[in-house]
Nucleic acid binder design. Structure first.
Lengths: 292, 292
DNA sequence: AAAACATGATGCAGGAAAGGTATCACTCGA
DNA sequence: TCGAGTGATACCTTTCCTGCATCATGTTTT
């Protein structure tokens, strides 16, 4: 087998068609260069350069081999670059989990920043509810998730990337829509409230229960998706609590009302394995917005 | 710069994930192997293998570098072969990519004509899906591909070499099999449809979606290979659309039905680099059948 | 808990391979 | 005919790689 040095030697000679100049270009003297080319020809098993004491020219086999040699040397350069870029997190793939809700306001800007700052990172998107994201993170199917508490913070690390108020969504013709002031827990007394699945959307379930604990509304339905909740509200099945960004979903026939009182902040967390080593992940984490 | 020996060393260790066994495979002892890998890592400027006293595993950079290294070593082999063949007066080599489907009706006749009319051209066959063929063409690993749109026609030139109807494949005992007339889009209403990967078999994916857009069937599965699709149909998992030549695959238990309506032509393109200079390629192109 | 084992890294000596200098063999133009 | 220019060869020096022995460390066995 031949060596890369032999290839460089051959390419230099093939381009200069002169051993002396080629040797200069390679910062060496002519005799070892001649020997390298001879070795290469022996290794390949074909005469690549026709040379007498007056001129040097490529044989047909040399012509064909030259293009291959150039290709090979180019690949040598790019292979190193690629590995370095992957090592620094500038290239590779990021398997990103997200909840449907996080797509409303957070996912778009994040993806835009990623494609601007790390254009060689392929982002593979997986829409999942938070527990499925956590499962995916632990199984190694996902690198990063965008979800809600709770999660096991021994194994998983996290950072808040978005915080917004909780608000109420009510049918457009509902009495609460006309109040024109922030709603309190007491306002929901006797209302039919649509809430969330305690297992699949535990975070919103608990936010809802906590806010409404004082009044004792009828909580029914066990829905996973924010959008479903709002569509049910639009259909007149009740009222519900949703994150403020849900306004941007553009559902007709509902009104969004601010809430009064504490504990109505909705947090979106970026979540990843504490022991994750992916360079892409490390790099992405450094550019994640942080909200305290 | 690194050396080819270092690449072979790295590939061996990456495949064995064990320095001792890799050293055996390379007919050397473990200490110099360790040093070769260390030198390679220093030359590349990135850690490629994560190793402690118990286990060896690839880093992400190592994973990326491994594929490049394999590509490089493969090119080393073929470069020598190529030069030798040219040296021995053979007309040259055509590296031909093809999709599994194109082999059914097109590849055989093409190879027969090639060996008759250009007997001293060696054809090296590579079965790949279209995106992989395009990648190979751009990297210079392939001279000519047989694939499906879409591809970048700025860099690549192409010619249609085969055109055939799209048809439906359904289980033999399926109600659609008994109709005895060309099927329309509406016939698929409510059927379970097996379709193709939007990335790896984009052409058939889009043909399927376009034909069935009017009726709203349940499209599931994301398969790459035509044969797999037909086997799933035979297994009763649904119905699918395939090129007419798929009849010749000889799968038992399915029926092929013609389709009615427009837009059901399946085209196979010969694809090559617009800037390709290979004389072999030019000669092969002059004898390619052309369908308009 | 201690000993035996396994694995990758390191120190050192011998040998293969590459580079440099001097020189040769040959061609061509003055 | 002679001198300049070119690639090949001879010989020596230097560099780098290999193999053996050994170390450091973590795992399994007793």
């Amino acid at each position: 087998m031949f060596s890369l040095d032999q290839l460089s030697a051959f390419v230099a000679v093939a381009e200069e068609l002169h051993f002396g100049r080629a040797a200069d270009r390679l910062n060496m003297t002519q005799p070892p260069l001649s020997r390298q080319v001879q070795k290469l020809e022996r290794a390949v098993g074909a005469r690549l350069l026709e040379r007498d004491n007056r001129k040097v020219e490529l044989t047909e086999a040399g012509q064909a081999f030259l293009t291959e040699a150039r290709r090979l040397l180019a690949l040598v350069e790019t292979a190193g670059d690629l590995a370095r870029r992957v090592d620094q997190g500038a290239a590779g793939t990021l398997r990103l989990g997200f909840t449907a809700t996080s797509a409303i306001r957070t996912l778009g800007p994040l993806l835009r920043r990623l494609s601007e700052e790390l254009p060689d990172v392929d982002v593979i998107l997986h829409e999942r509810v938070t527990p499925a994201q956590i499962d995916g993170l632990l199984r190694g199917e996902l690198d990063l998730g965008l979800g809600r508490p709770p999660f096991d913070s021994d194994v998983l690390d996290s950072r808040i990337v978005f915080r917004e108020p909780l608000c109420a969504v009510v049918p457009g013709n509902h009495r609460l829509a006309a109040l024109g002031r922030p709603l309190t827990s007491a306002d929901f007394s006797g209302e039919q409230v649509i809430s969330y699945s305690p297992t699949q959307a535990r975070y919103f379930h608990e936010l809802t229960v906590r806010f409404l604990a004082a009044s004792h509304p009828r909580i029914e339905q066990r829905v996973q998706q924010i959008l479903t909740v709002i569509l049910l509200v639009a259909a007149g099945r009740g009222v519900a609590l949703v994150p403020a960004s849900a306004r941007h979903l553009g559902v007709e026939g509902v009104t969004y009302c601010a809430l009064d009182g504490p504990g109505q902040a909705v947090e979106l967390h970026a979540i990843w394995r504490r022991d994750a080593t992916s360079p892409v992940l490390q790099r992405v984490l450094t550019m994640l917005p942080e909200h305290h």
